[in-house]
Computed example of a mutant assay.
Amino acid sequence: MPPVRTIVPLWRRAVAETLGTGLLVAVVVGSGIAAASLSPNDVGLQLLENAFATAFGLAVLILIFGPVSGAHFNPVVSAADWWLGRRAGTGLTVRDLAAYVPAQVVGGVAGAVLANLMYDEAAVSWSSTDRSGAHLWLAEVVATAGLVVLIFALARSGRAALAPAAVGAYIAAAYWFTSSTSFANPAVTVGRAFSDTFAGIAPGSVPAFVIFQLVGGVVAVGLLAVLSPDAGQAADDVVTPPSDTTVRSGASA
């Protein structure tokens, strides 16, 4: 007899998105602080250490929170999930999206504060690292579009169980092949503005990064319309598929 499928309440999914995004930013910022301390004279090694920790940390967080909320941790991913799934009756509802995005942003800020405190820094120290320029904005379009296409390609082909490893690997690679070091996430970008450390971004650079990440999401939706017109059918499996006894999306709770 198949297991009874239950609905995870929206509040619980929002909590999972808050915690997951917060811990992701804590990994990014914390490993950046550690890297700068361990390898003070080698920026390349600092980036390698930061990328390594982020890739593995993200994979673990997807495994932990995926069965609860889908482990989006990213407003662009959540928005694409809603947009692509709306016609098929899959993915996030408008109400879900309205809960996920603020939860992710709040989590991102809290994660940066947590990382600062763990390394005996001021709880909030606005980043002074300017990250502006057309080349960086283009890199954010590429990084974000690639991430969204990867996630939906995995879901559509029934390989969403590979998301922890695949998404972690993509982010690690994108740290190096994009000039912006692949923020690719508005919530993470906002959070990283709260830490004046290796992984930080100046508040004045945040709006443009977020705008071009959203552009990357639009590009991804366009690519999926060409490559996988039925990608929305798999929106319930973004980023990770539900467990045998869990349905995430479309809940009214």
Results as ranks from 00 to 15, higher is better:
60 V>P: 02
81 D>L: 03
194 F>M: 14
116 N>G: 05
6 T>W: 12
114 L>Y: 04
159 R>W: 05
45 L>Y: 10
238 V>G: 09
89 G>K: 09
161 A>Y: 11
6 T>C: 05
168 G>T: 01
33 I>S: 06
95 R>G: 00
31 S>K: 02
136 L>E: 10
41 N>M: 06
46 Q>T: 06
113 V>H: 13
224 L>T: 01
12 R>G: 08
142 V>C: 08
80 A>C: 05
245 T>G: 13
132 S>A: 15
75 P>A: 04
56 F>I: 09
251 A>K: 03
44 G>Y: 06
201 I>V: 15
227 L>V: 13
76 V>G: 09
141 V>K: 12
200 G>Q: 02
17 E>F: 06
32 G>Y: 04
244 D>T: 00
137 W>A: 14
127 S>F: 04
11 W>E: 11
106 V>Q: 00
92 L>Y: 08
146 G>D: 01
142 V>Y: 09
8 V>M: 14
98 A>E: 01
20 G>D: 06
242 P>S: 10
9 P>L: 06
184 A>E: 14
27 V>P: 04
48 L>A: 12
22 G>N: 07
246 T>Q: 13
88 A>R: 11
96 D>P: 01
64 I>W: 15
39 S>K: 12
55 A>S: 14
59 A>D: 01
112 A>I: 03
5 R>L: 11
221 V>L: 11
184 A>N: 15
148 V>M: 11
211 I>K: 02
112 A>W: 03
214 L>G: 14
79 A>D: 08
187 A>Y: 05
127 S>N: 02
124 V>A: 03
187 A>D: 12
249 S>M: 10
129 T>K: 15
7 I>T: 10
39 S>H: 15
94 V>M: 01
66 G>L: 07
50 N>L: 08
169 A>G: 08
229 P>K: 05
46 Q>D: 11
74 N>Y: 07
23 L>I: 05
197 T>G: 14
59 A>C: 02
15 V>Q: 10
141 V>S: 13
231 A>Q: 07
122 A>V: 10
122 A>K: 15
170 Y>V: 00
174 A>D: 12
139 A>F: 00
55 A>W: 04
191 G>L: 01
162 L>E: 14
169 A>R: 03
95 R>V: 00
91 G>C: 09
244 D>I: 00
185 N>R: 00
237 D>Q: 12
186 P>S: 09
156 R>L: 13
55 A>T: 07
209 F>P: 07
248 R>S: 00
27 V>G: 10
61 L>E: 13
151 I>V: 14
163 A>D: 04
145 A>K: 04
87 R>Q: 14
161 A>L: 13
164 P>N: 01
5 R>S: 08
41 N>D: 15
224 L>E: 06
8 V>S: 12
42 D>P: 01
142 V>A: 10
131 R>W: 11
138 L>Q: 15
58 L>F: 12
114 L>T: 13
43 V>H: 12
14 A>P: 02
204 G>N: 04
21 T>W: 03
199 A>S: 09
220 A>S: 10
92 L>I: 01
103 A>F: 01
86 R>Y: 09
215 V>P: 04
151 I>S: 11
26 A>G: 07
